[in-house]
Amino acid sequence: MSATVAASPRTTDGAAVVRPPTPAGRHRTRRPRRRLGATLGTNGILVVGAAYMVLPLLWLVFATTKDASTLYGASVFTPGGSFVANLQRLLAEDGGIFLRWLGNSILYAGAGALVAAFISLLAGYAFDKLAFRGKSALYSTVLVGVLIPNTATVIPLYLLAASVGLTNTMWAVLIPAFCNPFSVYLARVFSSGYLPDAVLEAARVDGAGPVRSFLSVGLPMLVPGFVTIALFQFVAIWNNFMLPLIMLQDRSLFPTSVGIFLWQSQVQQNPEYSPLVIAGSFLSIVPLVVAFVLLQRFWRAGLAAGSVK
């Protein structure tokens, strides 16, 4: 978007500094009431939108404090007294397997995000800064990878993994997690935005080789991009459900998403599983919500970069 529209002469005298601008004189008399209405209307709708996003989460928080009988029937937004009991039961169920699932999720998402972000950064940097033959053809391959929905490759991945005996191992979940073509695209955007060519040129003049100048000059300047890409990949792996559901049979290898699903599928026969499912859901989103609130700067940067064509 490079719409450099010439401002009309009437507005050039400093009006751009003030926002909202002083309205033209004839509007001034009826402005206050209209402004009040607009303020109430705009913020009112935003409050409704925010409530729609937050209330289901609030329901989950309150539901975590209830046992199976008060979950059905009792008024919704009053706390029950079973919060601690629910968490204790959650952590004790099946020999404390929930903590194991949480650990698996952290391992898959943490290791997957770090490795994927690093190799995507390498590739994005190469596509942005290096000249080589076949660059556009290779980059097109990456873009084709972006266009294919993940779930369409899950069953093919399972078939291939089964043929080499890798199903039901953590590698079956980890190796696909290392690959995200969209991260390469993001890394290329970050590399061209954060890393001026002149800086690398200066490093080269100082006698640094291509690898050295990447490691000592490029990488430090790309750290914000690395964090952003790793954050998005972490969330994507943490949220992934179909791949681990299909690849893993041994429940001690499950991530939380598949573990909670296993319990949920028993709720129909035994409602006593409900508090487990709810408390498990609650516990597994707390780290993500905290991470998102603390790392705001990075997901904003990622979303801004992702919308550039």
Binding site: G49, A50, S281, V289, Q296
Partner: peptide
């Protein structure tokens, strides 16, 4: 408002579907 609106994205799809299944 931005943080509140973005919050559901931090919730895994499985759990979002579970919450709404109960709702």
């Amino acid at each position: 408002f931005q943080v509140l609106l973005f919050l559901p994205h931090a919730v895994p799809g499985v759990i979002a579907a579970l919450i709404w299944a109960y709702l």
